[in-house]
Simulated assay, not measured.
Amino acid sequence: MNILISDSKEELKLLEQSDINRIRENLPDCMVELYPYVNKKEFLKKIADADALLTAFLPIDSEVLKKAGKLKIICIMASGYNNVAVEEAKMRGIAICPAADYCTSEVADHTLALLLALIRNLKHYEKDIEKRNIWNYGTAPGGIRLQDSILAIYGFGKIGKAVAQRALAFGLKVLVKDPYISAETAKAHGVILVEDTYIKEKAHIISNHMAPTKENKNYFNFNYFRELKQQPIFLNLGRGETVDEKALTQALDIGYISGAGLDVLKEEPPVLISNPLLYRENVILTPHSAFYSEASIMELKNITFMNLINFLKGNYTAIKGRIV
């Protein structure tokens, strides 16, 4: 049985020899190949002989899956799997196994960090002090008081719940939009299940944690932003596909929203030199880093490699998360 581990050179730097050794110790009859992705043509040759693929962000489209005649499983070293042609994989009997719940605390903490930095004008004051040599609190707007504010969370999975828990501790009132939960579930977590109309009328902060679907692509579009009544801060720590970035830029320019904190963009890595979201004191971008800590990376690798090993051993009940 052949196991192919492939991604960009940058992503593969996260792996250590001990990770590879873990596979070999648990699956001594398997051949393991570590392949830093160069181009698709070369990758197609590699995938043709693979029984299992471990990757994080490589696009696994229909062309790749058609060449992968022996492939049984794709283990994703990430929580999302929107880079995989899921229906094609299902048709070919190829399992998809993303990592589950390895960075909930980090993403929730990052959400509040972006929110607090924006509300307290930290980017503005840093520039005042370090670049303009100004020591004056009055050069920035006073900002809102969290204790008197309303936060709306889109997507009430584990991360959404963790964000709500932190927000409630700050005294925020928390609204939730999620078609997959009940009002009773929301109430049990101290939040209120509502629809878009109420959020657009009341929310001072909007935080997106939705997983990408066909239905929510460009969910946050120009029509959405122009209907907002409170000029809220907008946070995206879900997926870039859910936001129309041109509309977001327009919303910032017009004033439909008062600021934005974004850990994800539609295209990654983005072309930063021409990105219209840069050089704004009311916008903070981070490089898809919300998940990142020493503990989360260790847990991510442990979950991914053990999922791969358990699947190939036929021990499906030991897999952390779910098999798609």
Score class of each variant (00 low, 15 high):
residue 52 A to R: 01
residue 39 N to R: 05
residue 43 F to V: 02
residue 74 I to M: 13
residue 66 K to Y: 09
residue 30 C to L: 04
residue 35 Y to Q: 04
residue 83 N to T: 14
residue 57 F to G: 09
residue 54 L to E: 10
residue 40 K to E: 14
residue 64 V to W: 04
residue 60 I to R: 01
residue 36 P to M: 07
residue 81 Y to M: 15
residue 53 L to Q: 09
residue 59 P to S: 13
residue 63 E to G: 13
residue 34 L to S: 10
residue 64 V to P: 01
residue 54 L to D: 05
residue 65 L to H: 01
residue 58 L to P: 00
residue 54 L to Q: 11
residue 33 E to A: 06
residue 58 L to E: 01
residue 66 K to V: 12
residue 57 F to V: 06
residue 54 L to S: 03
residue 55 T to W: 13
residue 63 E to D: 14
residue 37 Y to D: 00
residue 83 N to D: 00
residue 64 V to K: 02
residue 55 T to G: 04
residue 30 C to W: 08
residue 66 K to A: 14
residue 71 L to S: 03
residue 28 P to L: 08
residue 54 L to H: 03
residue 28 P to I: 13
residue 71 L to P: 03
residue 68 A to C: 13
residue 47 I to N: 03
residue 50 A to C: 03
residue 62 S to D: 14
residue 76 I to W: 05
residue 32 V to C: 13
residue 71 L to E: 01
residue 69 G to H: 02
residue 69 G to L: 05
residue 47 I to R: 04
residue 68 A to L: 06
residue 27 L to G: 07
residue 66 K to H: 06
residue 69 G to Q: 04
residue 55 T to F: 11
residue 57 F to A: 11
residue 69 G to F: 00
residue 82 N to V: 10
residue 76 I to H: 01
residue 35 Y to D: 05
residue 51 D to Q: 11
residue 68 A to R: 07
residue 60 I to S: 08
residue 36 P to Y: 13
residue 40 K to A: 05
residue 49 D to M: 07
residue 30 C to F: 14
residue 49 D to I: 00
residue 31 M to R: 05
residue 74 I to L: 09
residue 36 P to H: 04
residue 46 K to V: 02
residue 36 P to D: 12
residue 61 D to F: 07
residue 67 K to T: 09
residue 56 A to I: 13
residue 28 P to K: 06
residue 72 K to V: 07
residue 75 C to H: 00
residue 82 N to I: 07
residue 80 G to Q: 06
residue 37 Y to I: 10
residue 71 L to R: 01
residue 54 L to A: 14
residue 72 K to S: 05
residue 64 V to A: 06
residue 83 N to P: 05
residue 31 M to F: 09
residue 44 L to N: 05
residue 77 M to E: 07
residue 63 E to K: 08
